[in-house]
Design a protein around this nucleic acid. Structure first.
Length: 560
RNA sequence: AGCCUCAUAGUGUAAUGGUAACACCCCGGAUUUUGAUUCCGUUAUUCUAGGUUCGAGCCCUAGUGAGGCUACCA
């Protein structure tokens, strides 16, 4: 596995600079999700950046905080908090003792707001949301001042205290910063700092009736935690002036710097939390951990190795360019990791029976097969075999094409790990489908090259008919049929691929009967599979999810 | 329309102002008891126009294109 370029991205360069010049003795970053949904592959990029920077600068005492940005009680739940913690750990990162909740800073935020009021930099607004919108102006025309903008200081203090006490109904008033109604940056046109919400908060319960807005709370959270570099995505670029304004006008213990980078976009992948939530709520998928979802829990269940995801994030890099990465890049890293680590097993997904008519010529009770074609340290295993085996239907052609190397009438093929066999005949059912294949073994060909005059160019996988067990195998395809379902604003549900999940009953070798959930392996020429942790019922059929298909250009070329 | 940001093969990223490169994808070939892996090879790149400079992907100006901003979401 090749390591990504050792070259520093622009953010790491800034951090290295700040360390070199002594601006900071160390660096403290933070990963600040709002607990309003499950984490997805896009978050992985941010996690790898923030925790990665901390890990790389560990020598200077760098660290990365996990902070839940829970300032909006209407959308946040404890279930999400727990899933987020699990996902960060799954990726291999550790926040140590630095686990924080923005909601624990509510009192401090309140004090800062009072401070701003006393400085004449904030006022209680009593226009409606609609009026505020109208008076904010638009992209080209400045806003007009609120009639409450120059409310006396004492009155602001009194009103704000009442807001906190719960004396107002939701929407009745808000606290606004007094900045610049003519600013070309809309975020600076007296942004709202606090709104009234009589909602139950997952952490603070019913203690508060006012909740701070992101733009007010986030810089304060960072400053309070002595974050040196606050890394966020590009859409917050226009918020940086406001971020700095808050830092510069509130009594904070440190001055963090916000730096923006491009979020991850993947082809055929929905990253919008709103849309993922919709898919879950409408039952279009099995849940947040549905293996077709790009959530980290979905990928875990699908068998994506966390190391491969981390490697992918490094390879994609950090820039300010807003592009769309081909999922093929991700899938390559998954295959790359699995190819090296996954043991091989045999499974037949679409079975047709082969009767070995001269089995008595050299009968075997089992064969020895390597668990990995390159890595001998993974050892071998014994697989039972007898005179009847299942092979893949596509491994036989009644009238073989020019580039078809497998079985056909009077042709030779090797049963992987076993004999070379020759097809001596076949039977069809009423529908004209092959129902049985007859063949003979070539004695002396186990573990040996093909004899003179025998053309055997392929080895196929098989399952012993006498001992094979049945397993449920789930083949996942892309959930969406267009490259950018996120771009399909209103009709994104219409591009769901109805064939995104196929469930098959496969015949697999007995060693797969009792594997641990999470066990991943490669089924020869079919792809990588993982034993499902959720649907794995002891004593019943094992369930395997296909992680990713093998790279099979020959199939695309019409090779079968 | 105003402001902010960005622009390098099909995709994602590199390149102290000094020969434009790496990975993925695609295609071709060799090896292979997985049509996988591995190995070798092919195609293809600096948005446009000016300027500074001995020399510009990099610096400057303009244009074009893309993304973001007019939430009591984050």
């Amino acid at each position: 596995m090749s390591d990504p370029s050792p070259k520093l991205d622009f953010i790491r360069e800034i951090i290295a600079d700040d360390l070199a010049t002594g601006k900071h003795a160390t660096t403290i970053t933070r990963f600040p999700p709002e607990p309003n949904g499950y984490l997805h592959i896009g978050h992985a990029k941010s996690i790898c950046l923030n925790f990665g920077v901390a890990r790389e600068n560990a020598a200077s005492g760098a660290k990365c905080h996990l902070r839940f940005d829970d300032t909006n009680p209407e959308k946040e739940e404890t279930e999400y908090v727990e899933s987020i913690k699990a996902d960060v750990q799954w990726l291999g990162f550790d926040w140590g003792s630095d686990l924080y909740f923005a909601s624990n800073y509510f009192e401090f935020f309140y004090d800062c707001a009072v401070h701003l009021i006393r400085q004449g930099l904030a006022y209680v607004e009593q226009q409606s949301a609609e009026e505020m919108r109208l008076n904010r102006g638009n992209l080209t025309t400045p806003g007009t001042p609120s009639p409450f903008r120059d409310r006396p200081l004492e009155e602001n203090l009194e009103l704000f205290a009442k807001m906190r006490a719960g004396d107002f109904k939701e929407g009745e008033c808000v606290l606004r910063a007094k900045i610049d109604l003519a600013s070309p940056n809309m975020n600076l046109r007296d942004p709202v700092l606090y709104r009234i919400m009589h909602a139950h908060h997952h952490n603070t319960g019913d203690a508060w009736h006012i909740y701070p807005m992101y733009d007010f709370a986030h810089p304060l959270e960072d400053a309070l935690e002595h974050i040196t570099h606050s890394l966020c995505t590009l859409e917050f670029e226009n918020h940086r002036p406001l971020y700095d304004w808050v830092i510069n006008h509130c009594p904070v213990p440190s001055k963090p710097r916000q730096i923006e980078f491009a979020r991850l976009n993947l082809t055929y992948t929905v990253m919008s939390k709103r849309k993922l939530l919709q898919l879950v709520q409408e039952g279009r998928v099995g849940g947040w951990d549905d293996p077709r979802l790009p959530t980290l829990s979905g990928m875990r269940r699908r068998g994506y190795p966390p190391e491969a995801i981390v490697h992918f994030c490094k390879r994609v890099g950090i820039t300010k360019f807003n592009g769309t990465t081909d999922v093929a890049l991700l899938e390559f890293d998954i295959r790359d990791h699995l190819n090296a680590s996954a043991p091989r097993r045999m499974a037949v997904l679409d079975p047709v029976k082969v009767v070995l008519e001269n089995w008595s010529a050299e009968p075997l009770s089992h064969v020895e097969v390597a668990n990995h074609p390159q890595d001998v340290s993974l050892g071998e295993r014994r697989i039972p075999i007898s005179n009847e085996v299942w092979i893949e239907r596509e491994d036989f052609m009644e009238e073989p094409e020019k580039k078809f190397f497998r079985l056909g009438p009077d042709r030779y093929v090797r049963l992987k790990g076993g004999h070379i066999i020759r097809c001596t005949g076949f039977e069809k059912d009423a529908d004209g489908n092959i129902s049985l294949i007859r063949a003979e073994i070539l004695p002396g060909t186990v573990g040996a090259d093909s004899p003179e005059g025998v053309v055997c160019k392929a080895a196929i996988h098989w399952a012993d008919a006498a001992t094979a067990i049945e397993a449920e195998v789930r083949i996942y395809d892309r959930l969406f049929t267009v490259e950018d379902p996120d771009g399909v604003e209103e009709g994104f549900l219409s591009v769901i691929n109805p064939d995104s999940l196929k469930v098959l009953t496969a015949r697999v070798e007995p060693s797969l009967a009792d594997v641990e959930p999470g066990f991943s392996c490669q089924f020869d020429r079919v792809g990588y599979f993982v034993a499902d942790a959720l649907d794995h019922q002891p004593g019943s059929k094992p369930v395997f999810n296909r992680t990713v298909a093998l790279k099979d250009s020959w199939v695309k070329k019409g090779g079968r």
